[in-house]
Design a protein around this nucleic acid. Structure first.
Lengths: 199, 199
DNA sequence: GTGGAAGAATGACCGCGCTCAGTACTGATC
DNA sequence: GATCAGTACTGAGCGCGGTCATTCTTCCAC
């Protein structure tokens, strides 16, 4: 047996395994049937744990969704940042960041919308929520980076980025827009962003 | 007995009375203790109707809140429109419309935030929801009216007004901002609106 | 090994919003 | 009045997310 550099006992290992099983179970069930059509009991069963145990790992069902969706969002963000690098026009560059986020959010509309709801109305003290907030901040920072290239937008870059966030939210979240395809949503956002960037 | 121009029977009258009792009961209880701390059972009891009857008059608890808050919102909107009339500076005029809405929304923070959540994520087919959407549209129209006075903002007035809506929502709704006093929220909105109005 | 403190897991249970099969009421028709 | 179709009302009950007293597990001290 190699030197045990860390005191990782059975206990810690089991917890980690459970965490993974929960994540996997929730991830699959949510993707298959949507967050509203899945009960926490089903998730617990699929993860092979008791109903109450689930809530030791995520305080609410919403937190569970945040856990799952955060990783998708993180990927989309990386993708968007890369895409924006090669684009000089500010509007196009901003939209290069926006598009993957919208796409990822619309992969399963109900989950995406519930995710947004959870971010805005959930408990910011919860760990997965904090992570989600971190991602939105990073998104705004990516937009700021783009805007800073341009002297005209530079002074208000942070404020503008925050406004873009708001525009995105109100384009994606409402029930009224839930049937809109990705391209329509992106177009709606673009039309608004265009207006707030100086000519 | 004066001529009975309308066939208003006991039935119709009773329904109307119940509607009023429900509205009054929900209104009081929500204002006193906040929507989350009131059960539908309590509202039904206070309105002196069966628990199930309540849902013949409002399909969900959320609809009940919309019913109550809509009338407050409507008042705030009228007030804001009037205030904006006497103000020439576009930014100040827009903010004159915004402020009463924020004030009314913050009268009871939890109710206000839940109201916003319901507007965005609720069922737009429900009658009280439609009314709420109508009010947000009217708010945007009031802002449009202000922007149309200025030739520089006129072409994009509708889009700009929609963006102001989004800014307002993201300033008022998030849990993170729920402790902010009215003035802070208004200031936060102003700072953003300032940036999107041409200089 | 043995004892026992600390922590993790459990599932019966609770309170909630909401439903629906059954009941009561209304008012038109004779 | 009596009959009856249509409508409104009711409250027991359901399914859900979430809790908590209890049980089980780990691991350290000796």
């Amino acid at each position: 047996m190699p030197l045990a550099s860390k005191p990782v006992g059975r206990r810690e290992r089991n917890k980690q395994l459970k965490r993974e099983r929960i994540m996997a179970a929730a991830s699959e069930l949510f993707a298959e049937r949507g967050v509203d059509e899945v009960t926490t009991q089903e998730i617990a069963d699929k993860a092979d744990i008791g109903a109450g145990t689930l809530f030791l790992y995520a305080k609410t069902k919403g937190e569970l969704l945040l856990l799952v969706q955060n990783s998708l969002y993180a990927e989309a963000l990386v993708q968007g940042k890369q895409a924006a690098e090669g684009i000089t026009d500010p509007l196009d560059a901003v939209m290069a960041i926006v598009r993957p986020v919208v796409e990822c959010n619309r992969k399963q509309v109900d989950n995406g919308r519930t995710y947004l709801r959870e971010i805005v109305f959930g408990d910011p003290a919860e760990p997965h929520h904090r992570e989600a907030l971190g991602l939105t901040i990073q998104t705004e920072e990516a937009i700021v980076a783009v805007l800073l290239r341009d002297d005209r937008t530079a002074p208000d870059a942070a404020t503008l980025a925050h406004i873009v966030s708001a525009i995105m939210f109100v384009a994606m979240a409402p029930t009224i827009n839930s049937a809109n395809p990705v391209d329509d949503v992106v177009q709606e956002i673009r039309a608004q962003v265009r207006v707030i960037l100086p000519v």
